[in-house]
């Protein structure tokens, strides 16, 4: 996943931010321990949210420890200890990162794809052995996505379905018997939101390169730029995104939480809408460093 499911920093209390960071670093260290140093670059904010959510739903026992790491070599940081759930999340992060590099190759981004393959190929092969079911889910969903994209009449819902369903399936597998309608609806709509917001963020690039984009596919191919596209279609785009966000909120409000409600509430109630506005108002694609800068501001202030 791509870094669109984030908390709103200024609304997070210090200890909530510390908990969020502990999960992020926990995933990063677990990837290192399980799949190798290079694969740590697959750590993402979306999967951090997913780890906190699933951990709460299944009632995972969470322990912490303090350690220094490559990005924090001086002060020790509090990190979530390895557990079976974190292992699965680590595998999913790498599996998704590797499959994304293959997608980049199809989009003609050969250099990006080559770098990605260099970073993730070895780890992917390990993760595939450790979590074959997750890899199978991704492969099936990508095949479905490929066939849907060939359908010229496919609606935006139909195009978003394979990825949305993939995230739902991850939740079903990870939660086992503790899954339920509301959790599945939340995860489905989270997946749909990520797919749509990523498509919106990529709009300028896709227009320039002539590559597939679900918004262009459904609302008109002949566009000059993202700004031009939004003049004509902003209401429709906002409609799709708002409904997806509100369905997430509705499903979230129907769930019971015991561990990390405040952090999750910040992400679902505020973070999704904030990210939507950020992408709608941004003329260029949000970069990884921009997202990280947003997340690091508070840390810098505190230390």
């Amino acid at each position: 996943m791509f870094g669109y499911i984030l908390p709103v920093q200024k609304e997070l209390k210090d200890h909530e931010f510390a908990l969020y960071s502990a999960f992020y670093c926990g995933i990063c260290l677990d990837i290192k321990r399980r799949l190798g140093e290079k694969a740590r670059l697959a750590t993402g904010y979306d999967m951090t949210f997913f780890a906190i959510l699933i951990s709460d739903i299944v009632g995972q026992e969470v322990e912490f420890f303090n350690c220094k790491c490559i990005s924090n070599p001086i002060f020790k940081k509090t990190v979530v200890c390895q557990n079976s759930l974190l292992d699965s999340i680590a595998d999913i992060s790498v599996l998704l990162a590797y499959h994304k590099t293959q997608d980049d190759e199809q989009d003609g981004e050969k250099l990006k794809s080559k770098v990605g393959q260099f970073l993730f190929k070895k780890a992917y092969l390990k993760a595939k052995v450790l979590s074959p079911q997750m890899d199978q889910l991704i492969v099936t969903s990508l095949k479905e996505l490929d066939s849907v994209q060939r359908d010229s009449d496919a609606s935006i819902d139909k195009l978003a379905h394979p990825f949305a369903n993939l995230i739902k399936q991850f939740a079903v597998v990870l939660c086992g018997q503790k899954t339920g309608d509301n959790l599945e609806r939340l995860c489905y709509n989270i997946g749909k939101f990520v797919y749509l917001i990523d498509a919106l963020d990529d709009l300028n690039e896709d227009i320039k390169k002539g590559t597939f984009n679900p918004f262009l596919h459904c609302f008109g191919l002949n566009q000059q730029s993202k700004a031009h596209f939004l003049i004509e279609n902003k209401l429709q785009v906002e409609y799709c995104l708002n409904i997806t966000i509100n369905r997430c909120i509705e499903a979230f409000n129907n769930l019971d939480f015991y561990q990390s409600y405040s952090v999750l509430k910040n992400i679902i109630h505020l973070g999704l809408r904030y990210k939507m506005q950020q992408v709608l108002n941004s003329k260029k694609k949000l970069t990884r460093s921009q997202i990280q800068k947003d997340m690091k501001r508070k840390k810098t202030k505190r230390s």
């Binding site: 906002e238 708002n242 509100n246 019971d256």
Partner: peptide
């Protein structure tokens, strides 16, 4: 459902 300004508390059972 498509209103982006509506209070988040409005949706669902809000058990929390």
């Amino acid at each position: 459902m498509s209103n982006g300004h509506i209070e988040a508390q409005y949706f669902g059972n809000n058990r929390q």
